[in-house]
Design a protein around this nucleic acid. Sequence first.
DNA 1: CAGAGGTAGACAACTAGGTTGACCATATAT
DNA 2: ATATATGGTCAACCTAGTTGTCTACCTCTG
Lengths: 151, 151
Amino acid sequence: MDSTDDLAMPFLLMSAFRGLVDAVHAELEAAGYPDVRAAHGFAMQAIGRGCTGVELAERLGVSKQAAAKTAHALERMGLISRVQSPRDRRERLLAPTARGEDMLRRSAAAFGRQIKDWRTRVGDDHVSATLTTLAHATPGRRGPTDLSDWV
Amino acid sequence: MDSTDDLAMPFLLMSAFRGLVDAVHAELEAAGYPDVRAAHGFAMQAIGRGCTGVELAERLGVSKQAAAKTAHALERMGLISRVQSPRDRRERLLAPTARGEDMLRRSAAAFGRQIKDWRTRVGDDHVSATLTTLAHATPGRRGPTDLSDWV
DNA sequence: CAGAGGTAGACAACTAGGTTGACCATATAT
DNA sequence: ATATATGGTCAACCTAGTTGTCTACCTCTG
């Protein structure tokens, strides 16, 4: 239809994403997690209940070296543990600590509150339409932030 | 309503954004603009018909040093010119070259085609709802990718 | 009109998050 | 037993940003 507005889509996507993430990180900072960045949150979500470094790299769609850096940062922040695997001595098993799980819970709650705000602002139907639109927008896409395996 | 899906929103936003941008950049690369990155496209949009470095920094929501770096990169790629202002000799006026305007046209066309894909895939109503949702999602937000001044 | 303070831009050093390439240690298959 | 594949690490580099400092220039005020 009115395809002139379409050009704003990338900006709106970016802006909405940043607004969402910034709001959540402000809440996390207030809750005692000052150094958590967006990449850390994504990585924690990707680790889920536990995985290896290579799996993390695949889930995030980055190189294993990049995943290792992030994992080390998360370990330094006390959010995950990295313990040697019993069945394969090359592997280090990444798993959230109690503090990491608390951070994930708070993060999820904060995201939920943000989207709830959206729902009251534009209505449930619009938010639902947005979810389905975005879900169908990038079919078969694999790579960064693809969580089809782990949600 | 079903707030469990809400947690996927940041991932969907990110994924949709990356899918969109990647597709457009693939087209641009094929059209003879191989080195254009997402930041360059945003900056070109922000420059519009012309502005100074400080204005660019404000429009992008970054430091003026970062904006200057980007502007130099755009100049090296032949997409903008940086000429001294006649009325203020401190200023350098940034303005797209013919090549830069061609790039912007191709970029806009590519974005339009991508969103048209979305429309045929999920329907005009869903895409429109997405646009209005995202537009209302971050009210009064200023900073990166805020284009209220220059669209 | 002289000088104070504000502004545009450049330069340098740093950070975060990513990349590739080379490498070692360990598993696994032949 | 040996060849090959895999998990992880280290090192060097890239991009896009940051803060701090500096100079050149404009503008406002006494």
